[in-house]
């Protein structure tokens, strides 16, 4: 399936990825060719094949419900670009 400039722009917006016009245009070609390659999957009959998400047929193990983590705010926020009063700062969010 070929891809158009609008598809790239849409994906970029969904992925919150800023793209210049030139970048967007260059990805149209690359991604179209990658998708074309992916289209070779369509030739396989998978009607009776269940999708495989994990290579091992194992199941989820469960964690005991106990508090094991203590407050490490100061340590975690040392790598944060903008904090104040223990809060992460972002441009004003309007609800």
């Amino acid at each position: 399936m070929a891809l158009e400039l609008d598809d790239v722009r849409r994906a970029a917006h969904l992925a919150r990825l800023g793209l210049s016009d030139e970048e967007a245009a260059s990805y149209v070609d690359d991604l179209s060719r990658i998708l074309e390659m992916a289209d070779s999957l369509q030739a396989v009959d998978t009607e009776h094949v269940a999708p495989l998400s994990h290579s091992l047929d194992t199941t989820q193990h469960l964690r005991v419900d106990e508090v094991t983590e203590q407050d490490q705010r100061e340590r975690f926020q040392r790598c944060a670009p903008a904090v104040e009063d223990g809060l992460y700062l972002v441009p004003r969010v309007v609800e």
Binding site: M1, R10, A11, L14, L35, A38, L41, Q42, V44, T46, V49, A50, P51, L52, S53, S55
Partner: peptide
């Protein structure tokens, strides 16, 4: 994304099983 999931992702996961 919507409209492509089955054709690509789901298909690829089926092929993965094969």
């Amino acid at each position: 994304s919507e409209g492509f999931f089955d054709a690509y992702y789901k298909k690829a996961q089926q092929v993965r099983r094969l």
